[in-house]
Simulated scan of single mutants.
Amino acid sequence: MPDRNHNFIVFSPHISIRFISDIQSRNFTDDSKFLLLGLTEDAELQRLLFMLFLIMYLVTVLGNLLIILAVSSDSHLYTPMYFFISILSITDICLSTTTIPNMLVNIQTQNKSITYTGCLCQIFFVLVFNGFEICLLSAMSYDRYVAICHPLRYMVIMNPCFCGLMILFSLFISMVDAFVHTLMVLHLSFCTEVKIRQFFCELAQILKLACSSTFINNIFIYFFGCILGVVPFSGIIFSYTQIISSVLRIPSTSGKYKAFSTCGSHLSVVFLFYGTSFGVYISSMFSHSSINTAVASVMYSVVPQMMNPFIYSLRNTDIKVSLRELIGRIPFSNDFAIVKSH
């Protein structure tokens, strides 16, 4: 019979190999980089995507900046509704800036890598601004509910202090959600080179590539998904149920149209945001193609932020008037008119 020392010698290489593999998997996140493969590896398509995303990013930033300037420069727009619209524009700029510039740099330099710290930062800020936008849309629906169902008490209920508390509470909830998810990612280990078929670090993609258990991570995803998904959406449904019920009691057709027109822009933004998010969820469930999932992610992380300024500027008369006045005050527009007249 082999003695104990002989047994130890026989089994020790397996133990050593397993121990070294465990150390390598845990240390991978400390000194290595992730690879963002993007939407395609074709050089021609990458150049096309660079121009497309650059244009989309510039349109997003400039469009939302114009909304912010229009609201801040016109004292007639110092109301809760336009306060929420300006905060939404700031959120859209921040969300787009979290993902698109890094993608543009990677395409231009042909460097697909992102540091582990940079990837965690992207996960954190994407979750923060996405969660904040969800809560903000719910707050805006409550604002429309008070304006239509309780018009005489509107300024009393939607006072500056209450609006500020709604913003701070929404930001707090979204930051807690992002902090918990990012902290849980720190406990994951990655056994091989992490290649993310996406143009930014998305939490769902990171969890799929982890070689350690993600059970706890998924529990937190479902828990906060109920808080940030079901609760705000239920608030939106409740608000518009009350709004529709109140509007239907208005006798005149013009009165009904006027009441519904104040909600048109917000409803369009809600449908765009939740429609694209639902599309991503369906795509991830029924499509096993990583390319399709990546393209679907573009729809909720880029498109709504670019379209929101157009929705509010085209459908809102007050903002259109304010934008005309703002552009009219720009010096070069007056100089151009003088030169043209000569």
Rank of each mutant, 00 (worst) to 15 (best):
H150W: 04
H150G: 07
P151N: 09
L152E: 14
L152A: 14
L152P: 01
R153I: 03
R153F: 09
R153K: 13
Y154Q: 05
Y154P: 10
I157D: 03
I157K: 04
M158C: 13
M158W: 03
M158N: 08
M158T: 00
N159A: 01
N159Q: 08
N159L: 06
P160V: 03
P160K: 01
C161R: 07
C161W: 03
C161S: 12
F162Q: 05
C163F: 04
C163Y: 04
G164T: 15
L165D: 06
L165K: 12
L165R: 05
M166R: 11
M166Q: 15
M166C: 14
I167Y: 09
I167H: 04
I167W: 13
I167D: 14
L168T: 12
L168N: 07
L168H: 03
F169M: 11
S170P: 08
S170Q: 05
S170W: 04
L171K: 03
L171G: 03
F172S: 06
I173N: 11
I173L: 15
S174C: 09
S174Y: 07
M175Y: 12
M175K: 12
M175N: 13
V176M: 10
D177G: 05
D177H: 14
A178G: 10
A178M: 08
A178V: 03
A178L: 07
F179K: 09
V180I: 15
V180K: 06
V180L: 06
H181T: 14
H181L: 15
H181K: 14
T182I: 09
L183W: 03
V185D: 05
V185H: 05
L186G: 01
L186D: 05
L186T: 07
H187M: 00
H187I: 06
H187K: 00
L188D: 00
L188W: 01
S189K: 03
S189A: 01
S189Q: 06
F190P: 00
F190R: 01
F190H: 02
C191G: 12
C191S: 14
T192A: 14
T192G: 08
T192H: 10
E193I: 02
K195T: 03
K195H: 08
K195Y: 06
K195N: 12
I196E: 12
R197V: 07
R197N: 14
R197E: 11
Q198V: 04
Q198N: 12
Q198G: 09
F199K: 06
F199A: 13
F199T: 13
F199L: 15
F200C: 07
F200H: 05
C201N: 08
C201I: 10
C201L: 07
C201Q: 10
C201G: 10
E202F: 00
E202L: 15
L203C: 09
A204V: 10
A204H: 08
A204F: 12
Q205G: 04
I206W: 01
I206S: 03
L207W: 10
K208M: 13
K208D: 15
L209E: 09
L209Q: 09
L209A: 10
L209V: 02
A210P: 07
A210G: 03
S212Q: 06
S213W: 04
S213E: 15
T214G: 11
T214E: 10
T214A: 11
T214Q: 04
F215K: 07
F215I: 08
F215A: 07
I216R: 07
I216A: 02
